[in-house]
Design a protein around this nucleic acid. Sequence first.
DNA 1: CCCTTTGTACGAACATCATCGTACTACCCG
DNA 2: CGGGTAGTACGATGATGTTCGTACAAAGGG
Lengths: 108, 108
Amino acid sequence: MRTLEHPSPENFRLDTILSALADPIRRMIVCRLADGQHKQACLSFGLPVGKSTSTHHFRVLREAGLIEQRYQGTAILNSLRTADLESRFPGLLPAILASARRDSEPVV
Amino acid sequence: MRTLEHPSPENFRLDTILSALADPIRRMIVCRLADGQHKQACLSFGLPVGKSTSTHHFRVLREAGLIEQRYQGTAILNSLRTADLESRFPGLLPAILASARRDSEPVV
DNA sequence: CCCTTTGTACGAACATCATCGTACTACCCG
DNA sequence: CGGGTAGTACGATGATGTTCGTACAAAGGG
């Protein structure tokens, strides 16, 4: 079974995490995962980019520590590393998720 | 008196804010301002970059809505737009500031 | 009025990043 | 084993971003 490298929480870098979340496509992925869309193959997200670009974005998220990727056959099950992020940077992910939802809403 | 353009809170974009804060130098500026170093000239921050690069970073922060810049003679007084940020993206700035402090600490 | 201080404008050099297409690998199912 | 599915590797390309140096502008003090 193939496995993928995941950083441990004490190696999370704010620099890397913010750069990862600065990209709209990667923020879209994280938001979907937060909305309960765990356990979906990468390509089933229907992202508006090609296959290799999709691979690239998921890897950036994994290497930043934001998501966990586990092989299931030829597919990959993705999930948010909510607890690990909370232990290293408490409140960061929830705040960014809430801001992302507010950002896509019509301005009041 | 010279004045500078500042976006209003309803025009703040999460994209722009996260990109701005992804840069370590700009995060350094924001952290210093949060630590009470308001009302200081740009160059007095002693950033490890040249003059024109410094101008560039401060402008990125201003155009993202993160700081306010007001001329005072030939110098510029900088301050964090804490209230405006809180109204548009509640909790975002405090979470990032806390994470930034935690990031620079030795790993426990 | 000259000089200093503070910041800006401009252009160049360099690095990084997002994107793509094509070729390839790994796994599963019949 | 053969075919299909999901993802990776690689190289290229174009856009964006950081950095700098130099020349310039605006404000204030002697």
